[in-house]
Design a protein around this nucleic acid. Sequence first.
DNA 1: TTGTAAGCGTTATCAG
DNA 2: CTGATAACGCTTACAA
Lengths: 341, 341
Amino acid sequence: MARPATIADVAARAGVSPATVSRVMNGTRAVDQEMTERVRAAAAALDYSPSPLARSLVLGRTNTVAVVVPDLGNPTFHGVLRGLSHAAARNGYHVLVADSAESVTAELALAQQTRRRCDGLVLVAPRMPETDLAQLLRTLQPMVVVNREPVGEHASPVVTADYRLGLTELLELLYADGHRSLAYLAGAPQSASNTRRLAALEEFGATHPDLAVEIRPCGVNFVDGHDAAGPLVRSGVTGVLAFNDLVAMGLVSALGEAGVAVPAAMSVVGFDDIPFARYVTPPLTTAAVPVTELGELAWQGMWDLLSGGPPRRTVVLSPQVVRRGSTGPAARSRPETADGP
Amino acid sequence: MARPATIADVAARAGVSPATVSRVMNGTRAVDQEMTERVRAAAAALDYSPSPLARSLVLGRTNTVAVVVPDLGNPTFHGVLRGLSHAAARNGYHVLVADSAESVTAELALAQQTRRRCDGLVLVAPRMPETDLAQLLRTLQPMVVVNREPVGEHASPVVTADYRLGLTELLELLYADGHRSLAYLAGAPQSASNTRRLAALEEFGATHPDLAVEIRPCGVNFVDGHDAAGPLVRSGVTGVLAFNDLVAMGLVSALGEAGVAVPAAMSVVGFDDIPFARYVTPPLTTAAVPVTELGELAWQGMWDLLSGGPPRRTVVLSPQVVRRGSTGPAARSRPETADGP
DNA sequence: TTGTAAGCGTTATCAG
DNA sequence: CTGATAACGCTTACAA
């Protein structure tokens, strides 16, 4: 309630100059033993601690980084935030978090605003237009980009998972199980990771002419997957690659309601390996994205920058395919014949 | 990269005093039309925006609140953070998030540190010792406490869910289904919400002499629930109240592996209604804690305080019992006889 | 070793 | 309506 003690208060009580107090608090320079103790005592008595604000202003350093994510509700960003927050704390840094609430238009301004209160910015913005991103990259350094690779030259470390590789390995898994007719449930078209997945699809298709993969616009949430079930069953595919685990779980759930057995009649794979993927029924086959590690590496990149460290580098983490119960050998007959004679 | 423009730069370019620039930027006072435009032009040309740091120092206000949570990985705190972050943003406030990584010892220092960079503190610390909490309440105002009710006098709004009521209603649900022999899987003994649940147990037991509830130390995670299955089956109870959904899901999973049918042989209820509770098999009967709303209300309380507003108040949200597939009528025979003749 | 004073970038007071 | 000037609380030359 009472106004916090200032350096002047401590100085007065200890009978020394503010400069001396500062030197004692920071161990900047040697200070006479007896004076040091007087200052310590005074500081303790007044419950003094230096104002981070004032320090930041004069030092030009806040010991805080901004993290901008599209949606705090998404387990992926959530994991990144956690990894980052822990790693930053280990270096004495604080985290200012901003949630753009999926609003692509507000994201630019939000990033700029947030950045000004901090020493750096970690940006997770899978759907931000490339030109906006380029602008931020030019003006908001030091900056680290997570989960997308900006085009063109820039000075920022990039930390991302290899979505293309992940999807390729899922395709291989399904292909090896005999699936030759698949569907891909696409996420947001502009999203970076969706683009990478599509690239994987194209490449894999080119080298496997006997495989048919139809691409269906879908979404990123449970309900999107749920709603996709009907058309999918009618389409006669034997396996589905969902954009992410949420979509996959929605789909599996809807298939269950429709009496389509997973994986007997239809195989389903997700992406991300969110914490609950292993607990649904059947447990989800998916490509695990190491989100916590992503966050830790993002901090690592930021820390390098802040310490005026080594040249930028790009870190690409490989998703780990984990085979669980939602996939199996391709069904002999088409799913819609399940209720046939 | 270049040093950001300062108010002095803008003033020089526009041929006015810094004070005038400040007035234009803040609309604090009427400024001559022509001057205003000159300032605007200069500011735009130099890409100037006022330093939040300097403003904070002179205004004594950072437009930032600190949120301390025990674990960003927990869906509950996660939801609170999301609700809070959105609500704060609507009032132009930023959120500094600190994760104490479950370390009860570090929590006190963390809260103090974090608080100093902000205008207020939202504390989610279910296991912090009461004396520490009291100290923070005394020294770190304005402050809002989430999900526990501090003892004694204090000036802080409290926002919490009624864990006692929630568990009582779950008990009623099971009792109405004929269960007379139950087990409660306890969470962290020191935790505030665990204490409230125990109170519910005691009260309900007093008014229902024909009901037996055994209390078993357990934990708060999936594995804890999983590990609890064995002893539980042998104990012969017909229903289990898990500390939370995670524990319940672990238990259900282990019961499935052990061939104990849920809910036919054993009913299980969770607590919280985390996003995936409805998607597991069988879907979990649980008491839904409105976490997002908790976060929003926490901000509301903080905002009141920051605006020098009305007297403190305590908000208690009622969990909503949602009946799903993991509960049913009490089994006639004891579970361990499931494999009997 | 210690103190004095300037300055970090802004806003608010107070004359003009 | 505008411009000096003094804070805000701290660190850091520079001087003693």
